[in-house]
Deep mutational scan, measured.
Amino acid sequence: QEVDTIELTRQVKEKLAKNGICQRIFGEKVLGLSQGSVSDMLSRPKPWSKLTQKGREPFIRMQLWLNG
Rank of each mutant, 00 (worst) to 15 (best):
G36S: 12
G32Y: 02
L31D: 02
D40T: 09
K46Y: 11
Q1E: 15
V12G: 13
G32C: 04
R44V: 07
K50V: 11
G55K: 07
A17W: 04
F59A: 00
K13H: 05
G20Q: 15
T52H: 02
R24F: 03
Q11F: 03
Q23T: 10
L42V: 04
K13T: 08
K13A: 03
L51D: 00
A17K: 14
E2M: 10
I60K: 13
E57T: 08
C22M: 11
W48M: 01
K15V: 05
S43H: 14
S43N: 15
N67H: 09
G68L: 03
E28F: 06
S34Y: 09
I6P: 06
F59Q: 00
G55E: 15
V12T: 07
R24S: 08
Q11I: 04
C22G: 04
T9L: 02
L51P: 00
G27I: 11
I6F: 11
P47Y: 05
L33W: 09
G68P: 01
T52L: 12
G20A: 08
K54F: 06
G27C: 12
L33D: 04
T52V: 12
G36F: 12
S34N: 09
K15Y: 15
F26W: 14
N67T: 12
L31F: 09
L16Y: 04
Q53N: 12
Q11P: 10
R24A: 07
G27Q: 03
K46Q: 12
Q23H: 09
P45Y: 04
V3F: 11
M41K: 10
G20E: 03
F59S: 00
L16S: 12
L33H: 07
Q11K: 15
M41L: 14
S43R: 09
L42K: 12
K46S: 13
P47R: 08
Q63L: 02
L42H: 07
Q53T: 13
Q23Y: 07
M62C: 05
S39C: 12
G20Y: 10
K46E: 13
F26Y: 01
M41R: 04
V3Y: 05
T5R: 07
S37L: 15
G32R: 12
E7D: 01
P58A: 10
R10A: 10
T5D: 02
L66F: 05
L51R: 00
I25P: 01
K54H: 09
T52M: 07
L66N: 01
W65R: 00
M62D: 00
E28C: 04
L31E: 02
N19S: 14
V12F: 04
R24H: 12
N67G: 12
M41C: 13
V12S: 10
S34W: 11
F26H: 00
M41H: 04
D4L: 01
R61E: 02
Q23V: 03
Q53V: 10
Q53F: 06
K54L: 07
K50A: 10
K50I: 15
W48P: 00
E28D: 04
K54E: 15
F26V: 01
P58K: 12
C22I: 09
G32Q: 08
P47C: 10
Q1Y: 03
G27Y: 08
V3W: 01
R10H: 05
I6L: 07
W65T: 00
V3N: 03
K15W: 05
L33P: 02
K29C: 08
I25G: 05
E2L: 03
E28S: 13
T9E: 06
M62A: 08
A17M: 07
T9V: 14
K18C: 04
S34K: 14
R10S: 09
E2R: 07
M62Q: 00
L31Q: 03
K46A: 11
K29V: 06
L42N: 02
W65L: 01
G55P: 01
V3K: 08
F59H: 00
R10T: 12
W48N: 00
Q35I: 09
Q35L: 13
L66K: 01
E28W: 10
R24G: 05
K15S: 05
F59R: 01
L51N: 00
T9A: 14
R24M: 03
S49Y: 05
I60P: 00
I21E: 06
Q23F: 04
M62L: 05
E28T: 12
K54Q: 09
T52A: 12
A17R: 13
C22D: 12
L42S: 05
E7L: 15
P45C: 09
L33V: 14
G32I: 01
R44G: 09
P47H: 08
W65Y: 04
V38A: 06
S34C: 10
S49Q: 07
Q23N: 08
I60T: 13
L66H: 01
R56Y: 02
G27M: 06
I25L: 10
E57Y: 02
Q53P: 14
F26L: 03
I60W: 03
S39P: 09
E57W: 08
D4G: 03
R56H: 01
